[in-house]
């Protein structure tokens, strides 16, 4: 993948001998929140506000979680998704995993997707054993196949005596391990990992990383949401930056992380000033001078 700041053909117009696994075309996802009423308007008159109070709990509010996101992912890629909390990453991932249909736009998948997330609660009242059966069969395994892999799943999850206790009694790490073990019981074509690795200990993270590498080498595609620069840089070959539901950058992890840091990182104020300065220079001396000005910091963010 080219760095995001070079002009490139839209991903996928040339096949380059690679096989796409996800084609996401102008996907928008809107969801409704019920019983919250209309947005409050402080400018309303007090009488009107009093009247509207009685119906405040009635009605629906629409949340535009993902707006017009397009990209193409290929087999063998591992794609990191960066963005702030609430920027629509998890919603997008659930759609990529084929679980929540997009509100508009289209999505094509090449193969079976498997979602692994902190929110992907199986059934908390049920035991680990029951959840393994349900989760593995939902991935398309037959009872015989589940039986054959059951011990592997339990071994990987390391839940020991908790196997026959309800999942509600599990620690968050145990739950994460079990979910990971179930979701990767079948080598999925598309594995979607939504912050699920952050709950585990170092040992689990190391094993999870090995498993993810295996899936990638088996020509699968892996999506990883993480708030850690290091995770994205060490595990991903490509990164997407989602901000307020829009895809702002798509490219190599280094530069994308750099762009993200310009807006939200430790030096965000410095960067804002630099770009304001660049805009001023562009106005006075033209775009050449502005480019020269900005090139001073280029190496530091885009190695």
């Amino acid at each position: 993948m080219a760095a995001p700041d070079t002009d490139r053909a839209p991903a996928g117009t040339s096949d380059e001998g690679r096989t796409p696994s996800v084609v996401c075309s102008h996907v928008s996802i809107t969801y409704r929140v019920y019983g919250v009423g209309r947005e409050e308007n402080d400018a309303e008159g007090s009488v009107r506000r009093l009247l509207s109070r009685s119906t405040r709990g009635v009605g629906v509010r629409e949340v535009h979680a993902v707006r017009d996101v397009s990209f193409v992912a290929y087999r063998g890629e591992s794609i990191g998704i960066v963005g702030r909390n609430g920027s629509g990453k998890s919603t997008l991932l659930r759609t990529i995993a084929g679980l929540v249909p997009p509100t508009s736009g289209s999505l094509w998948l090449g193969g079976k997707a498997s979602l692994l997330g902190v929110n992907a609660v199986l059934m908390p009242q049920l035991t680990g054993r029951e959840n393994i059966w349900i989760g593995a069969q939902a991935l398309g395994l037959t009872p015989a196949q589940v039986r054959a892999r059951f011990d592997d799943i339990v071994d990987f999850a390391e839940i020991g005596d908790f196997l026959d206790l309800p999942m509600a009694s599990y620690s968050s790490g145990m739950g994460a391990r079990l979910r990971f073990a179930i979701s990767t019981a079948v080598t999925p074509d598309i594995l979607v990992v939504d912050e699920a690795l952050s709950t585990g200990d170092a040992h689990f993270r190391a094993r999870a990383q090995e498993r993810i590498t295996q899936i990638r080498e088996a020509a699968g595609t892996v999506f990883i949401v993480s708030h850690s620069d290091k995770t994205i840089k060490s595990m991903c070959t490509r990164a997407l930056w989602i901000d307020e539901g829009r895809l702002l950058a798509d490219g190599a992890p280094g530069p994308v992380n750099g762009l993200y840091a310009r807006k939200y990182g430790r030096h965000r104020q410095v960067w804002r000033q630099r770009f304001e300065e660049a805009a001023r220079i562009e106005e006075v001396e033209g775009p050449e001078a502005a480019a020269r000005y900005l090139r001073r910091w280029e190496r530091r963010t885009a190695p």
Binding site: P10, A11, T13, S70, S106, D250, K263, F275
Partner: peptide, 25 residues
């Protein structure tokens, strides 16, 4: 030039819907 600043204004280019459909097919 500021399109890659803190608030990128230029979004990654995308296939049109027809292209995407043909590509997926």
């Amino acid at each position: 030039m500021t399109d890659l600043g803190p608030d990128p204004t230029r979004l990654p280019e995308a296939l049109t819907e027809q292209e995407a459909e043909a590509f997926a097919a």
